[in-house]
Structure formats: C-alpha cells, structure tokens
Design a protein around this nucleic acid. Structure first.
Lengths: 145, 145
DNA sequence: CTCTATGCAAACGGTTTGCACGCGG
DNA sequence: CCGCGTGCAAACCGTTTGCATAGAG
C-alpha cells in the first residue's frame, strides 16, 4: 500500500532523471508513511537517527525537488514553518489552533465559487485553498472551565 | 467616509488606553485609506516622506497593536510578507499569481462547510479562510500566447 | 567517469527584541 | 512627570545559497 505509492513515486523520480539517493529516498518514504503533515525540521529530526550527518539543506533541497516533480505539496500557513503533504488529491485541511494538528477534510471542490469569483472579479481563477480552524477533540477536553 | 472610520478607530484606540502618536495615526490612516492590502514594508516606505526617521519596528509594533485591538487583520500567505487589511467584515480574497494584487470577494460565509467539518472531524471549528488564486485582467492580457 | 547531491557554513529577509531617550496625556 | 512609544541595532528563525567533496548511475 505505502510500498506501492513509494514504488510509483520512485518511478516518477527516475522518469524525471532525478537520482535516488538514500537521503532522498528516506525523505520521500517518511512523507508517504507519515500521517501527519510534517515541517522540514520535523523530517530532519525524524531522520537524524538514520542519517546523523544529513544537513537541513538536504531536506529542503529534496522537498523542493519533490514539490517540483509534483510528488509533494507545500502548505504554507502564516509565519510558521511550511508543512509538507504527500497526499496530492484535492482536499482541504482542518487545523487545531492549540496543538497545530492538521487533519484532511474531503469535500466536493467549490467550483461554483470559482466561477462566481471569475465573473465578479475578471480574474482567470486557477485554484483556491481553504482551511478550517478550531480545537481538536483532545484540546477541547483539556481546559473545561 | 474614511474620516468617519478614522474617528471611530481613534475612539477605539482611546478606549483601549492606547496613545495616539503621529506615527500610529499615520499607519492607521494609511490602512483605512489604502484600497490595497499593504505589507509592513509598503506602509513604511509610503510614510517615510512624512516620517523620515520612523523605523520599521515602529510600523510592526503599531500593526501588532492595531491587530490586537481588532482594527486590522493580518493576512499571511506563504513565505512572503504579511499583508494588512483594515476591512474587518467577513470576506474572502482573490490573489493574482503574477502581480500579487489582492481584491476582496464577498460571498456568503460557508457555514454549512463548517458544520460538516465539525461532524466529520470532531473539531470545534471557530472560523475558516479561503483564497482564490488566478490571473487578474491586466496580467491575463500581457502574455497572449 | 560524469555530473548531480550532499554537508557545511554563511547569507538572506521578514519580523522581533532590548534598551535608552523622547514625548503623549 | 509618569510611563508608553520610538528609533536604532542586534538578534532571531526558517529557508536559501555557494562551494568543495562524495557518490549515484
């Protein structure tokens, strides 16, 4: 399952003429395995056991390459670190304002809104993004009063 | 019109016990007058004629205070600078991917989506944001082929 | 063997902070 | 005249870049 996705991703890398280094493989595997939406630094820390000498720059470089090839999406929220998502299907995100957890939210794409926006603004709309903010179940429980 | 808004804003400042310095007044006035959604640096540059010695820090400090009081909203997109919006009514934004222009987009708040997201995720949703991306009329004209 | 990827450190850019002085109320 | 706000410079932090070396194909 994950292995299938990994094999397909590696095929895509090969087709694009991108070398499969151990570090790159590890970053990719981590993104595909991880159910979270990790930051570059989280990936860096998660892999430092396996690659004690790997530099953050390598993580960033690989994330950029994976993004350019279309294997990974970069999620940018505010001033904080970018987060990376290997789920390339259209979906929205729900973000916990307390703990920062991000969960996927599947909902039909808001095409009508794009059409209306085109009409009223004169823009050629290419895509949109939406995030919902709130408190996750765990964080809601914490401060009861 | 703008003057009314400015007067109301200044009242809010006074009520909050925030001093009205010339620099703060100027930042506030610029935000209310500006139809764009300026960055801190744009505000800084726009006012350096009137305040040649003003520092960026002062702009940032004042923007933070205005935000905390609820007179201004901070728009954070990706890694770029934050932009500031004195229109506190609920609205969405349409952003030109070429020139960066931001225009307001009024559309009924997507309450049903918030409700559904609460149900499927178990989060307590407090709000959401949405931006539409595309090319504005001017930028569409430029590269025809 | 070639050329890309890596590791390291320095650079970068937006934003924040510490501190002494200035000025609003 | 008290204390917040300002200006200045340094600090910060995520990210990028330059460069010499290592290693994938």
């Amino acid at each position: 399952m994950i292995d299938d996705k990994l094999q397909i991703a590696i095929e895509t890398l090969k087709k694009s003429g991108v070398r499969i280094t151990p570090q790159r493989h590890a970053v990719l595997e981590y993104l595909l395995t991880s159910m979270s939406h990790p930051t570059a630094d989280e990936i860096y820390k998660a892999l430092e056991g396996k690659f004690p000498n790997m530099s953050v720059a390598t993580v960033y470089n690989n994330l950029r390459i994976l993004r350019e090839i279309g294997l990974v999406r970069e999620l940018t929220y505010g001033d904080d670190s970018s987060r990376f998502d290997s789920n390339m299907n259209d979906h929205y995100h729900i973000i916990c304002e307390d703990c920062g957890k991000i969960v996927d939210f599947h909902y039909p794409t808001l095409d009508e809104i794009e059409s209306l926006a085109e009409k009223v603004s004169g823009f050629e709309i290419s895509h949109h993004r939406m995030e919902l903010y709130g408190k996750c179940h765990e964080c809601s429980k914490v401060k009861v009063q």
